[in-house]
Structure formats: structure tokens, C-alpha cells
Design a protein around this nucleic acid. Structure first.
Lengths: 196, 196
DNA sequence: CCTACCGATCGGTAGG
DNA sequence: CCTACCGATCGGTAGG
């Protein structure tokens, strides 16, 4: 009768959010029902509401947790005393690691933010826009200091962010470059077009 | 009493598919109801079923129409008698043009294919996998012929496809490089890392 | 944490 | 092309 409870890190709420992220990634936010999340955990749907407020709240938690992680890292990198190319490399490596280590959450933040309700949607978009602007600023400074080639900064930033995001597809090619090698290959490809 | 019917190109079915693509892009496939599509056209939801079979059929039409366009272009490029870099450039430019000229459809094919039911889902994924393989083959050949730098082909292909896809975000930066310049900037950035 | 249940909305059909 | 309508499923609540 007594069941062994697997010792998980984090609260019950964290478990719910993690399972939700996995399902939101696989099926999409709208297509995932609270009953599915509950089934996956082993409780009834109504029980979820003892730990969370609503379905939307789950999506909000996931999206802003990811946004916060990226903002925090950018903050740190901006204050580093290194050449621009090194800063860019740090950021690219962080993006790669986030994508591979927190796949579900990052994927959901990238794909399902549209389903955020207001005022969260506007907040999220503003944060993302600001994040891009700061990257553009970084590249622009690098160009002015002659540390980077004279490429259009927006084009460079968008290409970098998109290419890193493309790691989403990497699961299908798992055997290919092992992780450190993949990281180095991608960094190399993305920087070689921009580093002087 | 008599209303002037705007002369649209294509049948009523085409109109429905176009409106559906626009809504699927803005809100997502699952979050878009047939009633919304109908409202947008100016009829009742039930009237749509005189022209289409089901909601899923709309998504199928959009996804496979996009897939066919890309496959057809790849076919043509593969048969060109030009250096590999030129072939790659042609394909990149085609991707850019498809993204900008058929934004809704390409966006939906890229983001909502998960909502395809079987056997369409498997078919779509197989086609996309094959498309990538043929691009990898192209790059590999280019490397063997010493026309391209010795970069990991999968990494290059994924980066290129992802960067081009990143044009999705370009609408937010509209004033920036005008279209031909944008195209050239991106092609230049993506190829300069790979062209010898 | 569960049982029982609600109002809303969904995709789709019948019939004209 | 419309009115009328159906069964299913949804997010969420009451009450214990």
C-alpha cells in the first residue's frame, strides 16, 4: 500500500511546470489539456489547481523563466572586459547550452509565447525586442572599434539568434557532431563570417 | 441589393485557404476556430464546408503547398550547371523570397506542422528530412570539389535554413535594410563563412 | 487529492 | 449559403 515517492528536486508545482513544458513542446499549448498534464503526473485535473492558478499561469512561468535566464546572462556578458568577439562567443555558447539543457522550456518560450494573454504578451515581446537591441548594440560597438567586420548588425544578430534556435532540429541528427564539437562548429561558423 | 463582388484570383476555396493561413499564423492552428475563419470571410461557419472537407484539410493544403514549392525549386537547382556556391546562393535567395512573399503560408508550414494528423504528419516530416539531406549532399559535394571550406555540412545546412527562417522576425524591423539589400546582406553573411 | 459538475466553445452535420 | 443543432471536450469550481 505504501508507495515509494521518487525524491524530486523542487516542489510539486515545479513538477507540474516541468511536465507542462514537455507537453506544450510536443503538442503545443492550446492542444494540451489540463487533463493530459494531470494524467501524466498521475492525479486528477482538478487537483492541479491546488498548486497552480490556471493553465495560462503555466505558460507564463515557462516563458518568463527562460527570458530571465537570457537577460541575466546578457547582463553579465555586457560587463565583461573582453573583446566584442569574445562576448559574442560567450553569448552564443550560452544559447547553445540553454537550448540543449532546457530544451522543452526554451522551445516553448520560442514557439508558444503567442498564446500568452495580456499584459504578459506585451511584456514578453518588449523584453525580447530589448534583448535583440542590446545584441545589435554590442555588434555595432564591435564594428566601430574595428573588432568586427562591417556587416549589417541587425542581419548578423538575427542570423545568429536564428541559427542557434535551429538546434531545435538537432535531436533528429543526434549521432552527428558530439556536443562540444557541435558547439565549436556552430560558433566557428557564426563568428567566422563576422570576426575580423 | 446587388453587391459588387471583388474580383479575386482563384476560387472560393483559395480564398478560404488564404484567410485560414493568415489566422493560423496569427493565432495558431488549434486556437483558430472555423467560426473565426468564416467571420473573416463574411459567411457562417457551416458554409465553409461546401468548399472544404475539414479544418485539418486546410492545414494540409497549406503545409504541402509550401513543401512542394521548395522541393520543386531544389530539383531545378540540383540540375543547374554552376559551382556549388552559386547553387547555394540560388536556394538561399529562393528561401528569402518565399518567406517574404508567402509569409503566412511559410510561417504556418514551419510552425504548425505538428498539428497535422497521420499520415500527413509522417509524410511531411519525411519530406523535410529528405530536403535537408539533399542540401547536406550539395554542401558535401562542394567540399569534396574544394569549392567550399571544410565545415561540418549538417551544421552549415541547419544554420542556413534557420537563419533564413529568422526572417520571420524581420517584419518588426521593417525600415531597416530594404529588400534587395537585406537579401544581399544575408546571402553574404551566410556564404562568406562557407565560400572559399 | 478526489468526485461531481458547469457553462462555454469546438468541429461538424442535417436539411433546406 | 443559412438556421438549427449535436456530441465531445475544454478550463475551471464547489465541496468535502
Amino acid at each position: 500500500m505504501s508507495k515509494i515517492k521518487p525524491v524530486r528536486n523542487g516542489t510539486r508545482k515545479d513538477t507540474i511546470i516541468r511536465k507542462a513544458a514537455a507537453l506544450f513542446r510536443k503538442k503545443g499549448f492550446v492542444a494540451t489539456s489540463m487533463r493530459e498534464i494531470a494524467d501524466n503526473i498521475g492525479v486528477e485535473a482538478s487537483s492541479l489547481y491546488n498548486h497552480i492558478g490556471s493553465k495560462s499561469e503555466l505558460l507564463q512561468s515557462i516563458c518568463f523563466q527562460v527570458a530571465n535566464a537570457f537577460n541575466q546572462q546578457l547582463e553579465e556578458v555586457e560587463q565583461m572586459e573582453t573583446p566584442t568577439a569574445k562576448k559574442l562567443e560567450s553569448l552564443i555558447r550560452f544559447h547553445i547550452r540553454m537550448m540543449l539543457d532546457n530544451f522543452d522550456e526554451v522551445y516553448v518560450a520560442n514557439h508558444e509565447w503567442k498564446q500568452l494573454g495580456e499584459p504578459f504578451l506585451s511584456n514578453f515581446l518588449a523584453q525580447r525586442k530589448q534583448y535583440e537591441s542590446r545584441l545589435v548594440e554590442l555588434v555595432t560597438t564591435g564594428i566601430r572599434k574595428k573588432e568586427l567586420k562591417n556587416i549589417h548588425p541587425h542581419v548578423a544578430v538575427l542570423s545568429i539568434l536564428s541559427a542557434v534556435r535551429g538546434l531545435e532540429f538537432w535531436q533528429r541528427h543526434k549521432k552527428e557532431p558530439e556536443r562540444p564539437e557541435l558547439e565549436n562548429n556552430l560558433v566557428n561558423y557564426l563568428l567566422h563570417g563576422i570576426t575580423r
